[in-house]
Amino acid sequence: MNKVILVVVYLGFMGTFPMLSHAGPDEDLKAYQAYFKQQFPDFKDSNYLMGMYNFNDDKRRQWEEIMEFPPYEFVIEKGERLFNTPFPNGKSYADCLENGGTGIANTYPRFDLQEGRVRTLSMELNRCREKNGAKPLGLLKGDLPAILAYLAETSRGMPIDIQVADDPRALAAYEDGKRIYFTRRGPRGFACYHCHWETAGRRIRGNELSPAIGQAANFPAYRSKWGALGPIQRRYKGCMKNVGAKPLKAGSAGMNNLEYFHRRLSNGLPSNAPAARF
């Protein structure tokens, strides 16, 4: 009798274990996207990109009016100018980036197999500056987000394509980002998913909550609240502050891993950055 129980337990374990061992980033993505499809069966790609404006007609109209003269256009022009200004040694950003920087923003962040860590496009730009004798720029405000806006514009409409390389370090970075995303923080014990999964489409105070999928396809974005264009890590900091948590440092491994995980949720959607948000 004991042997029978042992065999049953063993078979049960063996049946479960392969399932667990195969649950990686691809399986995650399928499950996540299936959840949102179930929540919003009528949503097309454009709906995911529209975020909170799906859920409030007044705000959508206001947003559409803003989009008639998108506030980020001047920033794109500034970014292009900065991008094409050579360093004192005559080299330029285009010399540092794959394909001269055109049409690559939709594939960042990437996992750098040589360095063994996630690299954001901002990091690539600053690395290029340092390589060419210039000081790195601030990550959240000013010239760097403007250059990001220009680069994002060159990959507008291209599918978001964040790859987790078949490397245990890449998987670990992805898992770390996932942990940060699903971790409760701050005195109110909120995790990202509380607002953007189970209450997506509902309101928190005066704001409708956007679904997690599609958010990152819009960044960098011009936010009226900021009166400026900023990268997604600036938005993460805002979210963390809103729940009473001390935000992670921009450009830290944790923040980069969070961006790696979060941006991957939008894989397959057309890049819509830069975008405008309230």
Binding site: Y32, Y35, K178, F182, T183, R185, P187, Y193, W197, E198
Partner: peptide, 25 residues
Amino acid sequence: REAGLARAQAEHERQHWSPPPYAQP
């Protein structure tokens, strides 16, 4: 006292964080 609570929360989350059941493959 509050920092102690924050640390306890963070330690607990490190051990027990998990995507909600509806977000699991």
